[in-house]
Every structure is written in C-alpha cells, then in structure tokens.
Design a protein around this nucleic acid. Structure first.
Length: 576
RNA sequence: GCACCCAUAGCUCAGCUGGAUAGAGCGCUGCCCUCCGAAGGCAGAGGCCUCAGGUUCGAAUCCUGAUGGGUGCGCCA
C-alpha cells in the first residue's frame, strides 16, 4: 500500500470528474501528474503538480485548475483541506484518521508493509561479485558484493523474480597462473623451495592448497612437466578458491542462487552457438580495426581479426572476439554467458561491475541487444572505489608489501552489519570513504549506529510498556495528533514509496538514506519527551495512552526492521 | 584523441529521474541538559548547485559546449 499512489488515483479520479463536468477539455494526458510529499512539511501532507502540468494543454490558468481540483478533492472525507500555493501547486492536508489508518496498516502488515508488486514478477538476473577464483576476496570486492546483494533483496521485495548469480572466471589464463602458483606451494609442501616467479600469485593462502595437493596426490606430480599436472591442479585449486570465496561471501551475509562457470562454456559448443547467432544477424565479420586516435600503442600493426559489429547497437568501435592464435578473446565467453542468461528467459539482466570495467559496458549492452533482438535490457551498475582510512589516516594497501586487506579482515574488524550498511550509504558511482575507527563510533556521525540505536530504543520502550502491563491494551490510534508524532507517522507512510523509487532506479543506497531520516524523526520525538513528559512513549499509569504511543514506536521498529532486512543488516534489540 | 562516470556549505556527502525558500552530519558561534528517557538537545551563521548557452510555466536535475578530476581504449579478464 503506497499512500501516494493511492492519493494520486484520487487526484486522477477528480480530474476525470472535472473532465466529465466540462471543466477540463477532453483527451488530456495525465501521465505527468504526480503526488509527492512536499519539501516543506508546512505546505501540507501531499502536493500535486496537476494544475501546472495541465494548464498549457487545457488552455487554462494553473490557479483555475487547481481551485477546481481542490474543490473536487475536498469532497473526499480523507482530505481535510486543499489549498493552492506557489506557481500552482495544490497542497493537500489529510484527515488525522488517514494517519491512524497508516499506523494500523503498518502494524497489521508487519514485515510485509512496503512490499510491492511493482516488479510484476519480472524475471531479473543480478550478476555480481564474479571475482576471479584466484584468491580470497579483498576489500575491492566487498562493495560490489553488498550492493548486488542488497539490490537483489530490494528487487525481490518490490515484486521482481530475482536470481542472484556469480560468474566464475575459470576459463582464462589467470587460472593457469593459479595452477602454477599452487604447484610451487605443492613442491614446497614436499620440502622443496618454491620458485614464485614474477607474475605468479605469491599469496600465503596458497600454502594450504599446496598441503592439500600433497595429501591428495602425494608425489605424483613432483618433477613432472606442466602438461601432466596443469589441468588437474587447476581444477583442484580453482575448487579450493571457490570454497574460500563462498565462505567469504557467507561471512558477509551474501547469498547467491547460481554459480555459473566460464569453463563450462568451452567444449560444449555454447560459445560457437552464441557467435553463430550473431553471425546470422550479419554481425560477425573479418576486418581490421583502426588504431585508437591520439594514443597509438608502440607495437601497433594492422591485423585482420574476427570482429563483432557492436557499433550496430551503439558501441564506438567493433570488438574482436577471436585472438590471432584462433582462441576466443574473453569477450566471446561473456557473449555466450549472456546469451545463456537470455535463453533462460530473464526479462532483465543486471551486471554489477567495478568502475574499471566501465569501458566494457557498451559492448556488453550491444551483445545483449543483438542476442535478444532488443527484448532484454541489460543494466550495468558500476561500483566506485572504496578508500580505506583508520582514524582519518589513509590506509595504504599493497599486494607486494603484504598489507593487503581482505574481506575477512574487514568483517572481523568491524562486523558484517556495519560493513554492509556503510557500503550502502553512498550511491554506487561515487567513491566511498571507509574509516575503520569511525564506523564503530557511537555517535550521530555514524549512520549505522544511529539507526540501530533507534531500533534498540523501540525495543526498550516496548519492554517497559509490557512491564507495566500496557502491552495487551488494544490501542486507540486516533489520539496521536501531536506534530512530532504526525511527523514520524508521515515518515513511516513514505516507506512503500521509497521501496518503489529505489527499486525503479536500482539504487539500494536510498533505503539506507531513508532509514537515517526515519531514525532522526524517531530520535527527535524521543528527545521531545525529555522536555515534554506528555510526549514520552510510556505514560506511567495510563495504559490507554501508553498503548497508542507504543504502537507508534512498534510501527517505527517494524519499518526499520523491514529496511534493514533489505540491506541485510540485523536490527539491534538493545545497546551494549 | 575518443568513450563512460563525477563536480552541490570550510569538510564528507544527500537531494524523489523537472517543482515551491537546495538539505544532513562534521566543523564553527551561542544557549540548554548534569537528567539514567544515558551514550546529548535547541538555535544560528555558512551556497553563483564548477562555468557558458539552450529546452519550459519551472532546471542542481534534461540538452549542447567548456573547465577540472577519475576510469578505460586491438589478440589481459
């Protein structure tokens, strides 16, 4: 139940009525009519731009339309007043019974309050993380993982049919490098000194893989040429790495539905089929690319290649899909993988990439557009860098020096809840500062703490009310008419709208922002109780009033819990 | 050189896909609380929304161009 769409429907009905009465001309387009919370609460509860939008096509003055619309609307008992303001806004004030109704709805629906059918069961595939299976996840992966997970939660909550998917890049040269690196650790496990050549992965996490290889294969591969062991060790090591990554994801509370393997695309004809599909559309050809203007690589020489005509679908240049040695480029299996997603019947694909893959977006969109004949949109969200700090000091990270921060380090240091919330406090395409000290601070400055504190206070109020025996009294919600109380209820009423808005633009960070605002509103009311005892939630000796006021607190707790659930953050029940 | 992203208070950032007098936190200034409804509260100052054009009833938001920053740019994924 979205109060704003509900009242938008009322406005549209009123406009229809005015049309029927001849006050408005026939055939007006109402699509741009909105009903929104006004920026300044003093303006009322809701504002509609109908008069301004319709003035020109109707050939009337905005104020005339607004006044007629206002008169029409106030016949609805739920609308207490409608006044024309500014350039032609119509500000609506709602009857208090509406707010009591909202509160009742929140309490009735509980975890379902805010759930939307907006997505209409659209089958959406969200691909995220997709870290190479060559090592543990590091901080760079965390933000993408959290955004993808929260976005999936959000879309599911908004009525989409969501599949969360991890694409395992286990088909390229990097897993051969992994195998060679693991082989050295295997030799080490046998007492040989490892030769970690330049370009191999030096990480100590491979030591245990070496031990495991020894336990599994004994001396079988020792002193054997690469051709003997490469595939076996590659599979073994990749498997171990994926095991580690799954544990990392679990530690962060990230869930996946499907793990897809790049390697599995090879040798099954799937890549060939996908490319053939493009070929049939005339999008595959042999040709020679122009060198990039301005900055020509030194070793540039014109070369004939097999190319995908991605320019036919909006890319800047066509892209090679085959290497000169006849092997596929990385782009070819990616095409096949996305083709596979299209074939699985998804109506919408979402890819979460690191910002450094921004140059890859257009060609991928072109491929999906071509493969699906423009049926399936591909949305790509780019995730900007996270800058690490400790007490305001930049946290230097270097793979070589071993000061390399893993996902585990972060989760162990500050916890999964804090990590997740902080990662969602900024929009995905802005870089984000993450200060290990500040995120644990208990202060207004720390949004995680601030929201969880609100949720803890709610629980504390409810416990107190229970203790005094007001818990079972069925509340009369019509008594909650103080401005500070109404402000909080209005905020609660916005929740379903925030869900739909955030889902529509694929931006889970808006949920975190809303929760901060909701918490602020709740704390504000709480603080008023310091000076004005009549505004305290628990009224000693007055069960009826306490029941009503704690119903408001409980409703706040419900919405905070619903929001945090989307973010994948636990609600606190008490402060430690 | 080209493409994509970004530019909002001193700082870090929100800003409802075009609405009214552009918001929050920190910092700053001034008051208040000494309370266990604790881990602060209230108020104030602070803005050419990078710049220049355009679209329209109306622009931080959309379009064009400029400036500054980030990212990427044929057989690496």
């Amino acid at each position: 139940m979205n109060l704003f769409t509900e009242f938008r429907a009322c406005v549209l009905d009123a406009l229809q009525a005015l049309t029927a009465q001849g006050a408005l001309p026939d055939g007006l387009e109402f699509a741009n009519v909105t009903v929104e919370p006004p920026r300044d609460p003093a303006h009322g509860d809701m504002a509609t731009n109908a008069a301004m939008v319709l003035a020109k096509p109707a050939g009337l003055k905005p104020r005339e339309i607004a006044e007629a619309l206002g008169a029409q609307l106030t016949s609805d008992p739920r609308i207490a007043s409608a006044e024309v303001a500014g350039p032609g806004f119509l500000n609506l004030r709602l009857d208090n019974s509406v707010w009591a109704g909202v509160l009742g709805t929140v309490l009735d629906q509980g975890a379902a309050f805010g759930r939307s059918t907006m997505g209409q069961g659209t089958k959406v595939n969200v691909e995220f993380v997709s870290a190479n299976p060559t090592g543990p996840m590091h901080v760079g992966h965390v933000r993408g993982a959290v955004v993808g997970d929260a976005l999936s939660n959000l879309l599911a909550y908004a009525g989409f049919d969501v599949t969360r998917e991890y694409y395992i890049n286990d088909g390229g040269a990097q897993v051969d490098v992994l195998a060679r690196s693991a082989f050295e650790r295997y030799r080490e496990a046998h007492g040989r000194s490892p030769e970690i050549a330049e370009g191999l992965y030096p990480g100590e996490y491979l030591i245990e893989v070496g031990e495991a290889l020894k336990a599994e294969f004994g001396e079988q591969f020792l002193d054997q040429p690469e051709s003997v062991w490469l595939e076996t060790i590659r599979n073994f090591a990749t498997e171990r790495m994926m095991g580690m990554i799954r544990e990392d994801l679990a530690a962060l509370g990230v869930r996946m539905d499907v793990y897809s393997s790049e390697k599995a695309l090879y040798g099954t004809g799937e890549i060939e089929r996908a490319i053939d599909r493009l070929r049939q559309k005339g999008l595959i050809y042999r040709g020679t690319l122009e060198p990039p203007k301005g900055k020509t690589p030194e070793d540039w020489e014109p070369r004939e290649q097999t190319l995908f005509r991605s320019t036919a679908h909006g890319d800047d240049v066509d892209r090679p899909i085959m290497k000169s040695d006849g092997g596929w480029t990385y782009f070819a299996p990616d095409i096949a993988y996305h083709s596979n997603k299209v074939d699985r019947g998804f109506d919408l694909l979402i890819d979460i990439f690191g910002a450094d893959h921004g140059g890859y977006v257009k060609r991928m969109k072109a491929a999906v557009a071509a493969l699906s004949d423009n049926r399936v949109p591909l949305e790509v969200r780019l995730i900007q860098l996270v800058k690490l700090y400790k007490n305001g000091e930049p946290f230097k990270m270097s793979k070589r020096a071993g000061t390399f921060v893993t996902l585990r380090d972060v989760v162990e240091e500050v916890g999964a809840d804090v990590t997740r919330f902080v990662m969602l406090t900024r929009k995905n395409d802005a870089s984000l500062d993450f200060d290990f000290a500040k995120v644990l601070e208990q202060s207004r400055e720390n949004p995680v703490w601030y929201v969880q504190y609100a949720s803890a206070r709610v629980q504390s109020v409810l416990r107190k009310a229970d203790e005094m025996g007001a818990g079972d009294t069925s509340p009369d919600l019509s008594g909650l008419t103080h401005d500070a109380e109404l402000a909080l209820i209005r905020k609660l009423a916005e929740w379903p709208r925030i869900v739909e808005l955030s889902a529509r633009v694929y931006e889970p960070h808006r949920v975190a922002g809303y929760l901060s605002e909701l918490a602020a509103e709740f704390h504000a009311l709480w603080n008023r109780g310091n000076d004005t005892p009549g505004l305290r939630f628990v009224q000693e000796g007055d069960h009826a009033t306490t029941a009503a006021k704690t119903a408001l607190a409980r409703a706040t707790g419900v919405v905070i819990a619903n929001g945090l659930a989307i973010l994948g953050v636990a609600a606190m029940t008490e402060m430690r």
